[in-house]
Design a protein around this nucleic acid. Sequence first.
DNA 1: CTGAAAGCGCTAACAT
DNA 2: ATGTTAGCGCTTTCAG
Lengths: 340, 340
Amino acid sequence: MDTQITIADVAKYAGVSTATAGRVVGGYGNVSERSREKVLKAVKELNYRPNMMAQSLRRNTTNTIAVILGDIKNNYCNRLIYAIEKEAQKHGCNVIICNTHEDPLREYRHLQEMYSRHVDGVILMSAVKDISFVEESYKDLYAGDMPIVFVDRTIRGLDSYVVQSNNREISHDAVNYLIGLGHKKIGVLATDDYSTVRERIEGYRQALEEHGIPYLPNLIRYSQQDEETQDYKQALENIREKKVTAIYVLNNNLCMDVLKELKKQQLSIPEDLSLLVWDDEEINDYLDITTIAQPVEQIGKNAVRNLLKLKKKEKDAEKITENYETLKADIIFRKSCGTV
Amino acid sequence: MDTQITIADVAKYAGVSTATAGRVVGGYGNVSERSREKVLKAVKELNYRPNMMAQSLRRNTTNTIAVILGDIKNNYCNRLIYAIEKEAQKHGCNVIICNTHEDPLREYRHLQEMYSRHVDGVILMSAVKDISFVEESYKDLYAGDMPIVFVDRTIRGLDSYVVQSNNREISHDAVNYLIGLGHKKIGVLATDDYSTVRERIEGYRQALEEHGIPYLPNLIRYSQQDEETQDYKQALENIREKKVTAIYVLNNNLCMDVLKELKKQQLSIPEDLSLLVWDDEEINDYLDITTIAQPVEQIGKNAVRNLLKLKKKEKDAEKITENYETLKADIIFRKSCGTV
DNA sequence: CTGAAAGCGCTAACAT
DNA sequence: ATGTTAGCGCTTTCAG
């Protein structure tokens, strides 16, 4: 039984017109003190709650932003959501969450839904690696009039607004550190060919080359974190075969699998193998694993702010100068990297 | 620049009335094959996307559910969100996320927002411990015509729909197991006086009493997981002082703190102290910690289903018989509990 | 300062 | 089978 109280009810109860009632509720225009009081009283007594669907329809703004992510369960995503929700609240926005399970088709569907919902904007960690992979009919999803801010990754070949860590630089620094410790054969464990991963590998390569160490592509293994296939085992073994002295893990998802496997093989860190991992989690602290910590809170926060700016720009026709925001990640030095 | 294409545009382009266009787009009523084709063609060419705000306003249903949680960052909540989003998708619903930071005032505000948004329902992990704590003017938030399904916790004194684990039973079993190992002084680390915690403690007490072991309230310590106050240290010390042989941690949030502290004190598990923890996480597996694993996926799934049933009931005036759904948790026996 | 009324885009009852 | 039209609840222009 939906007994919605409308602005008309309030107006009638207060003995004014809907316009006047609307003015005081909405807080705009001029209303006499007398009317204001009457309306406020009516609102209170009737327990009036504006119907946001009607408001949104009329005002063409929904106070809603969407976050479309590859894998909600992921710790990075989780923290991102936390930060986004927090910042969104400050701006009076609610947050819709969508999980693509890293499937571009789902991503398209979600984007369509969000167009339909007329959300104020979307924060997107895209499952699409390259714009050339998306069918023509879906391309406009990424270039319509709905503001999109990308986080963590970019779609290659697409001009877009992005907020992410300084992947290349910090990756370079981390590998430099490893090299300084004497490591020359450094295995890399990566998820998939996302822009982020590429940038990190670029940094890796750059550091190697600066020291005249050959860059060997077959020291890099890609592994979907997938419980069934146990891909990572294969990847890990492949890397170990090459007699690496250190493993550089580009994604914390993969870290636990590595740890378990090393434990099973009774290998200890850093004595038998050094380990350097992306993304800080509590266990890294507990196990003293040297880690690259991303400024996730800040990324989420800035993504929301940029998004809202974009939305405003839309009206003001004012250009945003920066469309590529890079935030500094930190290396947290612990004890998982030894000399060689 | 918002150039929304409306059903009227589609109709005009297809050379039919808005009603006909609406019928084919909405998939109801009877339309000739010829008209259908024309409309479908128009939809495609114009790239028409229905305006969901208008739909929602008209149909008074939003295909949106909200999840209001105490602490989004929490692993349990994270997994819950994952499950909820997944199930909601299946029913064509999007999910709004709200974080109360365990603050009842924020919870009220979020509930009000959701009333305003006319969401189809709310899944709530309430920060409110007892209905008598909430001011009169807010009480109707929990008893309005917006369906609410509680997860994990109940508000004491409020008749409501709940989906949660069999806290008392499984807690009883777990403590029984500890007792069977010879433990008599079992310290408990809890978060706060939520219904969930109470139930778990009841199970603990029951197991003790069945074995004629005295129930000592001061073996139970409450500790907000709060990075600043380091409450847990105090709590942990208090417990240790009592010469307990096992610690029973009711919430995984607290587990990491305990582990770190024990490590610092160079205490090993289970030799120096046994440990049994609620909520399974990857690290528990890695560190071989015996754990009570909740069926989080199932809880999320059922919460969504029940919610949607409730929403339907609203119309059908059909009663839902069960309003209290209890799902079985499991004890995963590993190696953190020794004999004494 | 206030009120009447148009209209956001869609659905569905009603008429043809 | 198809079209006309009256709202859903709100905002806001335009008159007064």
